[in-house]
């Protein structure tokens, strides 16, 4: 059995007086695709780098399976890191890049190159084995970086914004490949990103961070349908945040109902813009009961009762679609 659970216990990172990561606790089961999600400066990268061993832990422990790895160097933790913009060695060919860590361990040349070729085959890059990184496209570089990280047979692969250097089309293609590879290998991936779409698409466990704290951890569905705080509801998008008598509530944009305004409607708003998005129509609304209000109507629903900018509409939602939020952040 190769996989081990990862556990962070009261892990804290301080830079001088600033607290980047504030006593977080997290348990990641072996074989999980975990996404650390949050705005820049939320502490997600620091957390990843502490797990990797590239950043010293100020307080707390990082436990991998039966071992406390808090003070171990990266290569002895059973983790491997894939760096942002890949950090491939520019003077080494792909196969030598992939074989690098075996060379550091003193594995003989023929043997380490054979193993590196095996990994290049895994990422479908064997044809480019003798090329230098500068001769590869972004997507190809990423595959080589993946092969390089995987050659040490890590229990956990750490990915620091792995898709941010790619163009949008390639990003979607590569994220599908990442997910497929993770399933095949059955190891834990911890993936740092600031894109909620990326995290939703990939994660088994989505960890949303803000200001050095974990605000919520759960499956993407659980987080999206029941955001713990207004911050999360705003950050992952697709929610309207409205205050009612009992406090803040979130209502998904696709659960908002709009009708032509009639006298005595509880809530009214003015249509500010109408955007056709293909399968749905996005309607921006100006209202006095919420700072931002958006309704996504299906094309059919919109066609049945179209609205134009300037129209006054009545806004409502079903009781069941209300999600009550925790303390606002």
């Amino acid at each position: 059995m190769r996989g081990s659970d990862l556990e962070l216990v009261q892990v804290t990172k301080r830079y001088g007086a600033t607290v980047a990561v504030d006593a977080i606790n997290l348990r990641v089961k072996a074989g999980t695709y975990c996404c650390l999600l949050g705005p820049s400066g939320c502490g997600k990268s620091s957390t990843l780098r502490m797990i990797a061993g590239h950043e010293a832990v100020s307080e707390g422990d990082i436990i991998l399976g039966p071992t406390n790895v808090t003070d171990l160097p990266p290569a002895r933790r059973g983790t491997a890191m894939m760096f942002q913009s890949y950090a491939l060695f520019p003077h080494l060919s792909c196969v030598d890049n992939v074989a690098f860590s075996l060379k550091m361990r003193g594995v003989a040349k023929a043997e380490r190159r054979a193993e590196a070729m095996r990994l290049l085959e895994l990422v479908a890059m064997e044809r480019y084995a003798e090329r230098l990184p500068a001769q590869l496209s972004g997507g190809q570089q990423q595959r080589v970086a993946l092969a390089r990280a995987l050659i040490t047979k890590p229990q956990i692969l750490l990915l620091d914004e792995p898709l941010s250097a790619l163009d949008p089309f390639l990003r979607i293609k590569m994220r599908a490949e990442l997910k497929k590879l993770q399933k095949e290998l059955g190891i834990t991936f911890i993936h740092v990103t600031h894109g909620e779409d990326e995290a939703m698409a990939l994660a088994d466990l989505m960890v949303v961070m803000n200001q050095g704290l974990i605000e919520q951890a759960g499956t993407p569905r659980a987080v999206f349908n029941a955001p713990a705080t207004a911050f999360i509801a705003r950050f992952i998008g697709g929610h309207n945040i409205v205050s009612d008598a009992a406090g803040a509530i979130a209502v998904r944009t696709d659960k908002l109902r709009l009708t032509k305004a009639v006298n005595g409607a509880a809530r009214t708003a003015v249509v500010s813009d109408v955007e056709y998005q293909g399968s749905y129509v996005q309607i921006g609304l100006a209202a006095d009961f919420a700072t931002e209000l958006t309704a996504n109507l299906s094309e059919a629903a919109f066609d049945a009762e179209p609205f134009n900018p300037g129209d006054t509409v009545a806004v409502s939602w079903r009781e069941a679609d209300i999600h009550r939020l925790g303390a606002a952040t």
Partner: peptide
């Protein structure tokens, strides 16, 4: 790129190995 030194460290290279395999060639 300083990240190359980190990548070498991540791959288990010692200080001297990083010097010989990464810094000197570059």
């Amino acid at each position: 790129d300083k990240r190359l030194l980190e990548a070498a460290y991540d791959a288990g290279a010692s200080g001297w190995q990083t010097l010989w395999n990464v810094v000197i060639p570059l």
